[in-house]
Amino acid sequence: MSTRTFRITVRGVFDGLSSGQRAELLADAAEHDVLRAAFTPEGHLTYDLAARPAFTFRFQDSGDEEEHILEATERAEEAARAWLAGRGYGYKNLRSSAEDLSQAPLGKRQRRAAARKDA
């Protein structure tokens, strides 16, 4: 049995931020720029509060079976909620999506490499 890698994206919208919280997020915006986006075990947050109040957390997790993706998604959502609650940030419309990378289609380069290996 092989280990599967899961990528979980948790999205939402900041809600009811105070002017101090907004200023805090804007001050830290460079750390959370979408150009730095990465899937990490602890979760990586991106947002552009100057453009819109939406945010995205990206998590990477793993499991041995396909069903473990549900548990990984629950852990990611809980981690996102805990991060937001720990800072007192209000939010709404929290939703998530997950992908099992073992089920992802191969890209063009990966297909070529696989064809060369089989030849």
Rank of each mutant, 00 (worst) to 15 (best):
G90C: 10
G43I: 07
P105M: 09
L84P: 01
E78P: 00
A23Y: 03
Q21N: 09
A29F: 00
Q110L: 05
R109E: 14
R95I: 04
G63P: 08
E74S: 12
A115D: 13
K117E: 15
D28R: 14
D33Q: 06
R87S: 02
T9C: 11
D15I: 00
S62E: 13
Y91S: 08
A104L: 12
T3E: 15
A82K: 13
D33E: 12
E42Q: 13
R95Y: 03
E78L: 12
L17K: 11
D15P: 01
E74D: 14
D100K: 03
L45E: 08
G86W: 10
T5K: 12
E31L: 14
D61M: 02
G90P: 09
A23M: 07
R52K: 07
F39V: 05
A82F: 04
W83P: 07
H44N: 07
M1Q: 05
T5W: 01
A98H: 08
R52G: 12
S62L: 04
H68P: 00
T56Y: 00
G63L: 09
A98P: 09
G12T: 04
F55S: 04
K108E: 10
A115M: 11
I69F: 07
R52P: 00
L70N: 11
P53N: 09
T46I: 15
A76F: 09
D33G: 09
R11T: 14
R52Q: 14
E78Q: 15
A30C: 01
R4C: 10
T56A: 15
T40E: 14
K108N: 03
A119R: 15
F57D: 05
A51Y: 07
E65L: 13
Y47T: 07
T46W: 01
S18Q: 05
Y91D: 05
D33R: 14
T3N: 13
Q103L: 15
D100M: 03
T73P: 02
G107Q: 10
V34G: 02
P105Y: 06
I8L: 09
V34H: 09
L70T: 08
L49Y: 06
F6I: 05
V13D: 06
P41N: 05
R7W: 12
S97V: 04
F14S: 06
L45S: 07
G12Y: 04
A82W: 01
A98E: 07
E31S: 14
S96G: 01
F6P: 03
A79Q: 12
F57R: 03
V34Q: 08
H44G: 01
E71P: 00
K108Y: 09
